[in-house]
Design a protein around this nucleic acid. Structure first.
Ligand SMILES: [Mn+2]
Ligand SMILES: [Mn+2]
Ligand SMILES: [Zn+2]
Ligand SMILES: [Zn+2]
Lengths: 143, 143
DNA sequence: TTTTAATAATAGAATAATTCTAAAATTAGA
DNA sequence: TCTAATTTTAGAATTATTCTATTATTAAAA
């Protein structure tokens, strides 16, 4: 999952399809979001870039994130415990589990969660976001 | 719902029960949250205070909000479209509907929403937050 | 190829929300 | 009252993000 080479054409293609000019910086950031990171902050992306893509500026991190959001390739997530915005490269409909111990945000496929609501009909719901909070049981090793 | 007088002993009592010294500023802010406002921002509280409680400082708004949160009399809510934190005086378990037109956040009693999840058993869920987004149908006047 | 125009990247300044600091005011108990 | 603890306050500091103005890169036109 850390190999840079072969992914790049694919990622470049996705950017073009979405109407985004695939610059080196955008490809690098989008690949990091898709292949390496899990709901990172802008700061985490910058830290990664400092190691892997020298000279990439913080302004470009934010510019790129906003371009990707505008192109519907990325979504923002705001979580209770964290002041910073998290960026989510999973744009399919899904929910989240927030691990209270580690702070990690885990994707939950929408198929695993069923939401039934009986609101007054004046409420026309277009989207439902479920955030589950809790702890992850340390998996006991089978012997 | 705008009358100041009679609520105050009750509110003062609630603060004391929660271990919070009921100062005039705290009573005023907490009453505004309970009786007048709907998920206000700190800025909205300050604007209200400027009209109704002269000399109350912005620092006191934030201090008081954080004291109330610490005392479990208030909860923070972060919504997608808004950079500022919203403060929720409804501390019972409930969900939210975000009106995409007005930006208004509406409380949804938990009884109206059923969430069923089939996560792997390693996920121990302690809390579920549901945010529904959509539009509110203008109620057609009956004649 | 050059030339040109459009777009993107960059450093650093600016903004906006919230927190911190240090001093003055208030409160509650001795 | 006196005292100690707590709260309020103004303004400075911090933090995340956006903006600005300049330079660099890209893509299209000549
Ligand atoms: Mn992260
Ligand atoms: Mn509000
Ligand atoms: Zn996600
Ligand atoms: Zn609420």
């Amino acid at each position: 999952m850390k190999q840079n080479g072969s992914d790049n054409k694919l990622i470049s293609g996705r950017l073009e399809t979405a109407g985004v000019i695939p610059t080196a910086q955008r490809i690098a950031i989008y690949r990091y979001l898709l292949c390496e990171a899990n709901h990172p902050t802008a700061e985490e992306i910058k830290t990664w870039a400092d190691k892997n893509f020298p000279k990439l500026s913080l302004a470009t991190v934010y510019n790129t994130l906003n371009v990707l959001i505008e192109a519907n390739l990325l979504k923002e997530v705001k979580v209770p415990h964290e002041a910073k915005i998290l960026y989510d490269s999973n744009i399919s409909y899904h929910h989240h589990f927030l691990d209270e111990d580690s702070g990690e945000l885990v994707d939950i496929p929408s198929e695993l969660v069923e939401v039934t609501s009986t609101l007054a009909k004046e409420f026309q719901v277009h989207d439902i976001q479920v955030l589950m909070r809790g702890k992850r049981q340390k998996t006991r090793t089978q012997h």
